[in-house]
Design a binder for these strands. Sequence first.
DNA 1: GAATAATTACTCGGATAAGGTATGTCCGAGTCTCCAAGG
DNA 2: CCTTGGAGACTCGGACATACCTTATCCGAGTAATTATTC
Lengths: 161, 161
Amino acid sequence: MRMNEGVEWALHSCVNMTWLDPEEAVTAKRLAAFYELPAAYLNKQLQSLVKAGILTSISGPRGGFRLARRPDQITLLDIVTAIEGREDAFRCESILRKGPGGNPEVDYRAHCEISMTMRQAELAWRRELAGKTVADMAATVARKYPQAPDGTRARFASLRG
Amino acid sequence: MRMNEGVEWALHSCVNMTWLDPEEAVTAKRLAAFYELPAAYLNKQLQSLVKAGILTSISGPRGGFRLARRPDQITLLDIVTAIEGREDAFRCESILRKGPGGNPEVDYRAHCEISMTMRQAELAWRRELAGKTVADMAATVARKYPQAPDGTRARFASLRG
DNA sequence: GAATAATTACTCGGATAAGGTATGTCCGAGTCTCCAAGG
DNA sequence: CCTTGGAGACTCGGACATACCTTATCCGAGTAATTATTC
């Protein structure tokens, strides 16, 4: 059980975009150069965020990506779900159907005790992620490292791309 | 982010073993036949449970697997960890090292806000799983489906292997 | 000088390869059982 | 009848293939800025 690398990239990228002018678009190339990541692959991940309505994309010169809504309206769960998909990590395969008294018609995700318990645990995980927004992250970082916002803007400005 | 299929198999198998005589060993072949699973692969997963100290294995005729300790002493987290390993799903790659002010010496798992928040969410997940034991599962199933224990024993007895 | 139209360069977006992990299979080492032979 | 030795069969355990998903890359469609041209 291993989360996509893109989740980490997407989270950091979204927090970084918080420091920028809301109208300003940043290219995937610059976002990638920021952490020395592969640009084309990061671009692919950002596309997932666009489809999920988290980012807005702009084509052509002076194009790029920007946050589609206020940072306090974007939860970490939104980003994780956009990259990883909506399915649970534990996918109940309804193996009880093959056991004694198994019924092919029954949806065991709603009846199998193990399936429900595993689902409950994932809900706790999701609840935690849904309780934190990109704005929360940015605020904490800015408090602990006051130079971060300006430093980020400066770095973006200096990056060729 | 997709959990190993073996986790579901291991959970169901452990609950099933709860119904059996604690001294009685069940072969991987029978456990697999119970849900029509691939025997050799299930055997591989059960080996992980043995290494984790959850099951005890016995070689030779009349051999097989049995629970290494009381079902109320085996949490779902124990089983998940045995199969999936101890690492977090979200593995912080410390990409901040490459950013402005990045320090190659710093362990960002303890300083990166995003890393810590993701870790916190996984802790909530683990806490849920650690709070449920195999005995809890078995008890709930037995209450909802009183015929389950006898039915399970009967099925094991009827399986060739 | 201003408006307009063609050109150009730059961006995202999706289609296309490469690598790694989960899945699945196989055979050998060890061991318990069963059976037969001998006391 | 009881003991003992050996053959046999069965089990786990780990080494060996396969398939799928993640990771990575590339090129084309579209677009906005730019430049040259005309009025």
